[in-house]
Amino acid sequence: MSAPTAASPIDQRPLRGVLALFASRAGFYAFAALVAAFFALPMAWLVLAPFEAHPTFVAGLVQPTLDNFAVVFKNPDALASLRNSLVLAVGTMAVVVVCASLAAYALSRVKLPGRDITLYVLLLFSSVVTGSAAMVPIFVLVYDLHLINTLEGVILVLAGGTLPASIFILKDFMDSVPTSYEESARVFGAGPFRILKDVVAPIVRPGLVVIAVWSIVTVWGSFLTPFILLDKPSLLPASVEIYSYYDVGGSAKLPLIAAFALVYTLPVVVIYLIVQHRYGFRFFGGIKG
């Protein structure tokens, strides 16, 4: 059991009880330490290697330096890939936020037959299709639309894949907004777009932040879609760029890989932790049960 809360007056217990309590506490912290080590150890390299003058595969800090970052910022390909990642992330986010707001609002306020089950099925479907099951038809479709090797093509595909979850999350937020706000605006003469812009969107701003951050984080890290839809080196996002380093470069590129990995990872981790701290686990709040 949860040992720290089980601390009751020890002096009244027989010795065996005291020992059992210590054993359970020790077990509790041993479990916590084990879990912490399990999660931390693989990440040690990401934190240490970028600052090591001669990084190896073993995480360690013998000769601290910041030179590795200079390598990254002098590498035009690396910089271009970060810029591409940013374009993809922000572009997809913009499309998703606009489309999901409109759709979630309509779905929240107008009862359409089979609305909830459709949305749920789409949500499951999107996690399958954007995963990998439809990589071939998506490639062929984007090819036929002449969007192959364009960032726009990747944005549209990623937006289509992230929309169901975004609508699902946002609808949950919109369902909790009392309709009297809208009715009030309506009586005063406001139309649907104005109500959405003036009244609903500002009130569900936390929800908009959540889906914006969620789509940025998702797209920033996405690998497969840009990997199959882009092969022009100048268009590759950071996820594919860094893969090409360790795929072909091997250990020779370790200083670059280490620093680049940190520069590429840090933004999403920071954004995510801030949002997690401010809004808690509402990302998938609507899914359960």
């Binding site: 693989p42 990440m43 990401l46 995480a59 996820s239 860094i242 990872t265």
Partner: peptide, 18 residues
């Protein structure tokens, strides 16, 4: 949570090195 959120091409390389 960080393990969950770090981009997949980064975690892949982290585990290769690990």
């Amino acid at each position: 949570i960080i393990a969950w959120i770090v981009p997949s091409s980064v975690v892949a390389f982290l585990w290769i090195s690990y």
